Simulated scan of single mutants.
Amino acid sequence: MPDTTSVTTRSITIIGDSHIQAIKKALLDRTNAGAKPRISALRLTGKKQGDLTFDEAVAFAAQRGPEDILAVIRRGNFYNTLALIQHPQAFDLLEPGADAADLQEGAELVPHAVMKDFFTSTIQSGYVKMHRRLREASPAPVICLEVPPPKEDAEHIRRSAETFFVQNNIAEAGVTPAPIRLKLWKLQQSALAASCHELGIDYLPSPAGTRNERGFLRPEFYAPDATHANAAYGELVLRQLEAISRTPNAGLATVQEAIR
């Protein structure tokens, strides 16, 4: 467990699951280049690796100061676990205001409202409880980081799929079409942003310039797997948080505008 003694200088701490690896790699690149960043990235303990348990993260949050920043990035692959692999019954959903002509041919139409309610209830039953504990424990403001958007390149995903997807036969079943995965990512992030607003937690979108014109993660930010971003993406997230730390009284919306 990291040191939990009182913090006397403004610090940035990021706590998360697998998506935090992009940030940890960016910090390592900075260190290797001779920098001494005042930023910590801590991975929650999973089956194979991690820096601290969630209970330890709550205790750690309680020791932050009101001028510090605590950022969280958690459970970002839920929508991928749900639908990265093509389901035997192809499905699609029509977003409000979208053209029905863009729907996948032959797919079963799932009502958008039903899928929205599903993501909302899932967020409420899991993410919200975790975020509330951190928010109640920490004197520091808590910022929720948006997880990287999905990758558009199905061949990259098939070729680089993580063990979970390989074991669940992605090679034979195929990859869910990119537009559908993007719709699910949007629903997850919308539900997460709404829950953060209710808790008084700021929600920080993915860095400007990391998405292509269709809304997917740009290839230069791909990690060599199916679902994660790389150190270049993590570096841009660090710069977002550093910009916020330099303007503590400006408000997140003002800072977001300044760094775009």
Rank of each mutant, 00 (worst) to 15 (best):
I73Q: 15
D92C: 09
L184R: 11
S125C: 07
R214N: 08
G76K: 04
I180H: 13
N32T: 11
G97E: 05
A173D: 10
K151M: 12
P177T: 09
A26M: 04
A193N: 10
D51P: 12
L103F: 05
Y222E: 04
E172W: 04
D68G: 11
P224N: 15
E155T: 00
D3M: 01
A173E: 12
L82F: 12
N212F: 00
R132F: 00
F165W: 14
D92M: 05
F91D: 03
K151S: 06
S190Q: 10
A62P: 01
W185E: 03
L82Y: 11
D17G: 10
P177K: 13
A193D: 09
F60V: 08
H112T: 05
D153F: 02
I259H: 00
A171W: 02
G126H: 10
V166T: 13
T81V: 04
R214Y: 03
L42R: 14
P148F: 01
P248K: 12
A137H: 01
Q188N: 05
V237F: 06
S160M: 12
R43G: 15
T45V: 14
Q89R: 06
R133Q: 07
L44E: 14
A101R: 15
D102T: 15
T31H: 11
F119H: 10
I143H: 14
I73W: 06
I39V: 15
Q256I: 05
P179Q: 13
T8I: 09
I259V: 14
I12M: 06
F221K: 01
R75Y: 11
E56F: 09
A253G: 06
V114D: 12
L109T: 04
A161E: 04
W185A: 05
E105C: 01
V58E: 03
D55Y: 10
G234Y: 03
A140D: 08
R159F: 07
P224G: 11
L145A: 06
R159W: 01
N230R: 01
K47H: 10
C196Q: 08
S40I: 05
E136R: 00
R246E: 15
T9L: 01
K186N: 08
I73C: 15
A173M: 13
G215C: 01
R38F: 07
H228A: 02
A173G: 03
G76T: 06
